[in-house]
């Protein structure tokens, strides 16, 4: 297990390096001079040169990458070109909002999606199963920004139940929670459908296995067979799906944060890209990739924890 964890973490670090190399290559390949785009066509050559030096764009690309990682190892992700504030501070300010949003959405999706999938299996072939099936496909098909805009119109503009924008007053839990409801729901809705369908599909497969018949032959109640004997196996593909899906949850956070003008990583990246604020883009991408890679590793370790057969493969 330890060797497996070390191997996965090593691979994760390699992925981080590759992503950053790709990012620098992209900046290098994008036509036009970032300084000109940022400062506008009427900037003086002196100002441009100053900015280019400040962003480190005069150095060879490979050297920029080495410098970036050398600084990153000491916790220095560079400085915002415009405000001169450390990128690490900007990211740390924005990150909690996004993480709370993403994790709330994920938790809601799991807490509703998994029981719905189980219910579908226990009531297979009935009206309840059919309704869950149709609704799941329905909500998967609706993009999160559409949900965001319509819920904004309904709950914030027409009914005035929930705040339209922002992340709530600092220190006021209730106002923060209220501000979280719509963005989280917008992201979670589609995932409820995904998870319910995924759980149902893998559960149906597991329910056909002989060990379920054994559990039935001992007269175990159906809810116990579903929740203990089947779910523990059926949840494994769902964990992989959710871990991979977290990337798309975080990217839908970009849209949703834009719609609700909610401070967060998504808004930070969008703004930084629009103003060609490369140090902020690079620092944010590094942190997001690191989070994403960590979650994937955590999911793999969790799967190894849940399934003793996987555990043994890596022990041997």
């Amino acid at each position: 297990m330890l060797a497996y964890a070390v191997k996965r973490i090593g691979l994760g670090l390699l992925i981080l390096v590759l992503v950053m190399v790709a990012m620098y290559a992209a900046v290098f390949l994008v036509p036009g001079d970032p300084a000109t785009v940022a400062l506008g066509p009427r900037a003086t050559p002196e100002l441009k040169r100053l900015l280019i030096e400040r962003m480190g764009l005069d150095l060879p690309v490979w050297w920029q990458i080495v410098e970036f990682f050398r600084n990153a190892l000491t916790g220095n992700l560079g400085y915002d070109v415009w405000s001169n504030r450390p990128v690490s501070t900007l990211v740390m300010e924005a990150l909690p909002n996004t993480l709370i949003l993403g994790l709330t959405a994920l938790a809601v999706a799991l807490l509703i999606g998994v029981p719905l999938g189980c219910l579908s299996v226990m009531r297979r072939g009935t009206l309840a199963d059919a309704v869950i099936g149709v609704l799941s496909v329905g909500v998967i098909a609706v993009p999160s920004f559409v949900v965001a805009i319509y819920s904004l119109l309904l709950f914030a503009v027409t009914l005035r139940w929930l705040p339209a924008i922002g992340a709530g007053e600092t220190g006021d839990i209730v106002s923060q929670a209220k501000a979280l409801v719509m963005p989280a729901a917008a992201i979670a809705l589609g995932w409820i459908g995904y998870i319910a369908r995924m759980v149902r599909a893998s559960m149906m497969e597991v329910m056909g296995e002989p060990h379920i018949r054994t559990a039935r032959s001992f007269g175990l109640p159906e809810w116990k067979i579903v929740s203990k004997y089947a779910l523990r196996i059926a949840i494994i593909p769902t964990i992989s799906l959710v871990a991979v899906g977290l990337g798309s949850i975080l990217s839908s956070a970009v849209f949703v944060e834009a719609v609700f003008a909610r401070p967060g990583i998504g808004k930070l990246i969008t703004d930084a890209v629009n103003t060609r604020n490369y140090p902020v883009v690079m620092g944010t991408v590094l942190i997001m990739t690191a989070i994403y890679v960590s979650i994937t590793i955590a999911a793999d370790l969790l799967i190894a924890r849940l399934d003793p057969r996987v555990r043994d493969v890596f022990r041997g």
């Binding site: 296995e209 002989p210 060990h211 018949r213 054994t214 559990a215 032959s217 004997y229 523990r232 196996i233 849940l306 399934d307 003793p308 057969r309």
Partner: peptide, 11 residues
């Protein structure tokens, strides 16, 4: 059960 290889829950 018929097949002891698959008769028990693997996890």
């Amino acid at each position: 059960s018929q097949d002891p290889m698959t008769a028990f829950n693997p996890v």
